[in-house]
């Protein structure tokens, strides 16, 4: 119909550093969940994963805010102002407090776990669960409350983020446990039972994750013009390699098939491959969501 003779080039507001930040908080929340399964909820099968889970959660959550600080224009001022000038209607304002409290709680929880104090470990583990959910859920809210972008502005966004966090966290835990058991223990025997249970959980979480993506896209494709445009951009446009191939095929569908076929699940080669593919796919998901969600001009 028309051609654009003169157009203004828009700046991209949130870029790749924010994707890495979301990825790290997701991995952290996921591994924290695994570590609380035995101490908080009494699934003793997962006890060998607990200590590794809490160490990974703390380290990743110390790494994650560094990406944020690299992205903002004024890093030191931003730390100060976030705590001093609190805006109760901004999701990002709560994030600063969560990013502060959650690692502190995780460290206390970890110290009690390493000392063998079961009662206190359980208390701090149970406090940590809603915090882990919040610290990753709020990142979804940040995007969902940016009303201008139809790809983000959906109530599913925090839930999608939580499920992708758990999925990638479990994949990371599978890899870490295999490496630890194989190379850093005296027996050099991998805890097969634990890995098998984690792989089964991974499979079912991937089913839910794929279902959520389907719900999201089916609504986008029937929604208003901007939403249809962004869905087409993801499915058939310039982002389709990242979204269809990397995120969903390599990151979710193939790992799901691998962990649901018992023969493949019990082979460590296939399981490690599935976990690696899933971790790469979730990283692609963060890039697709953050960058792809806001790259189309709005008007």
């Amino acid at each position: 119909m028309g051609k654009v003779v003169f157009d203004v080039q828009y700046q991209t507001s949130l870029a790749f550093l924010i994707s890495y930040y979301f990825y790290c908080t997701g991995l952290s929340a996921g591994s924290f969940m695994i570590s609380t399964l035995s101490y908080g909820f009494g699934f003793t099968k997962f006890k060998p994963a607990s200590k590794m889970g809490v160490v990974a959660a703390v380290l990743l959550l110390l790494l994650a805010p560094q990406f944020l600080l690299m992205q903002v224009g004024w890093p030191i001022k931003s730390v100060w102002n976030h705590f001093v000038y609190f805006n109760p209607v901004s999701a990002m304002s709560y994030g600063a407090f969560l990013l502060m409290l959650y690692p502190v709680n995780s460290i206390i929880y970890g110290i009690f776990m390493f000392k063998g104090n079961m009662k206190m470990t359980k208390i701090f583990g149970l406090i940590g669960i809603p915090m882990a959910l919040a610290v990753h859920g709020y990142t979804g809210w940040i995007l969902a409350l940016a009303v201008a972008r139809d790809y983000w502005n959906t109530g599913l966004m925090p839930i999608v983020f939580l499920f992708s966090a758990m999925v990638s966290g479990i994949s990371m835990m599978i890899l870490l446990i295999i490496i630890r058991d194989r190379f850093f223990t005296k027996e050099k025997v991998i805890n097969h039972d634990l890995i098998d249970s984690l792989a089964k959980i991974l499979g079912w979480l991937l089913v839910v994750d794929l279902f959520l993506v389907f719900c999201d896209y089916s609504v986008l494709l029937y929604s208003k013009l901007e939403a249809q445009e962004v869905a087409h951009f993801m499915l058939f446009g310039k982002m389709s390699f990242w979204f269809v191939i990397l995120e969903n095929l390599i990151g979710k569908v193939i790992p799901m098939i691998i962990v649901f076929i018992p023969g493949m699940r019990r082979s460590y080669f296939w399981l490690i491959l599935a976990a690696l593919m899933n971790m790469a796919g979730i990283l692609a998901m963060r890039v697709v969501t953050v960058y792809g969600g806001q790259v189309l001009p709005l008007m």
Binding site: Y10, Q71, V72, G73, A146, V147, A148, Q294, L298, M299
Partner: peptide, 14 residues
């Protein structure tokens, strides 16, 4: 302002 760019993502008029 700390330059976090959240307002840029939220503004419908860019």
């Amino acid at each position: 302002c700390v330059g976090c760019r959240y307002c840029m993502s939220a503004c419908p008029y860019e």
